Amino acid sequence: MIDTAQPHAARDRPPAPLPLPHGGTGARRVPRACLRPGPTRSRRRLLIALAAAVLAVPVTAAARPEAVPAPVPPPLSPLRTATTASLAERYAATRDAVETAMRTAAATGHRWRAAMLRAMAGPARHFLSFDGRDGGRAVEVFGDLAAADRIAVIVPGSGTGLDTYGLLRGGAMRLQRAIGGRGAVVAWLGYRTPSTVSLQAMTPGRADEAVPALRAFVRDLARLRPAARVSLLCHSYGGVVCGRAASGLDVADIVLYGSPGAGVDDAAAMRTRAEVWATRGAGDWVAHLPHAAVRLPSGTIGLGADPLSPRFGARIFDAGDAGHSDYLKDGSPALAGIALIVSGRTPAGMRRG
């Protein structure tokens, strides 16, 4: 099974600058020293505005990859109970939708997408929902949701879609093994993620679009499994989605890992009763991004305060030397810590930010 669409080393480097329009080298960059968060709010705001200005021209010249054609998925009947039988019926319905999208991708010459969808249509895969359009949406269950007393919902970050879904799936599988027992993991690719190198990845716009869907999903999960402990695990830009949605989510924990921000000034601004956790590996390039938000007439640029800063107010746990895509790797401190949090326990060495 494909676990990632990119070589390991390529995933853990910061994105290369986009080419400049009408020629040029594309080599304009903010100096590395300037990307480190400054000691004052005014400096952070200046840095985020500078980074946005550097990216703005290249991004406008870069088109997104052509969308792979996919049919409109058939409507699904409401899932009224989370019994083994009702879930099996839902999984069968979504498998049919995946197979239809696979045939469409193959017929239009998109062999990579067709291969990914063929794997997703396997009898051991369990999807609560699926939509192959516009990069794709998918909500997959790992473990027995009908019997789960602990449920972890993973919200992925920028650049995640059906063509790169293997990385999300691999992490979900490893986490489910780590929590074991009656624990289930849901990989929630329920929104249109921004491209990794894009102006959208530096603004909360796509996160705000995702908020209603994430809140609705968590509400449904609480209705179906009212006794289960639900934790929200938010990777990279997924942290912005969780931060913006937090006030409407009834969950026990919100974990921000490898996140450049949560779209808010601090944990208190999330207005949640959940325990807010944060971690970042020493090898994660996200640490070098400016952490601030500038409100302009046309919208907000920047993703908010650093979740690991003391003023943010999260509970910090260790991620070792993890790179940006390493948090849910077997044997990693972050995986061990997240598994403990999902189980209602406190990782060793926890501290307040």
Results as ranks from 00 to 15, higher is better:
R192A: 10
T203P: 11
A82N: 03
A322E: 02
I254P: 00
S298I: 14
G135R: 13
L35W: 03
A292R: 05
D3N: 10
Y257M: 14
T108I: 05
V240F: 11
P226Q: 08
A216E: 10
T94P: 02
V241I: 06
C234H: 07
I316E: 02
R43I: 11
A52C: 01
P226R: 08
R80E: 14
Q176E: 14
A70Y: 03
A51V: 01
A207D: 01
V255N: 03
W188T: 01
G304Y: 03
L47E: 15
G190S: 02
S309K: 03
L128Q: 09
L335G: 06
R44T: 03
H8A: 10
G135N: 13
C34L: 11
V153K: 07
S42M: 08
R103M: 04
R125C: 04
A222N: 15
L55G: 01
H288G: 01
R113I: 07
G183D: 12
R351A: 08
A92K: 06
S309E: 11
R32L: 12
L232F: 01
H324S: 06
L128Y: 12
Q176P: 10
A85P: 05
E209P: 02
S236L: 05
R244S: 10
L224Q: 05
G283L: 11
E66I: 15
A282I: 09
A187L: 08
I316K: 02
L214H: 12
R64S: 12
R118E: 10
R271E: 09
P58K: 08
T81H: 14
T40N: 05
P71Y: 07
T196P: 01
D321K: 12
H8I: 11
A322N: 12
T4H: 11
A106S: 04
A293M: 11
H324T: 07
P194G: 05
R43L: 15
A82W: 04
A152W: 04
G26P: 05
A16W: 02
W112M: 06
R206E: 12
R315D: 06
A348Y: 02
S325R: 00
W277R: 07
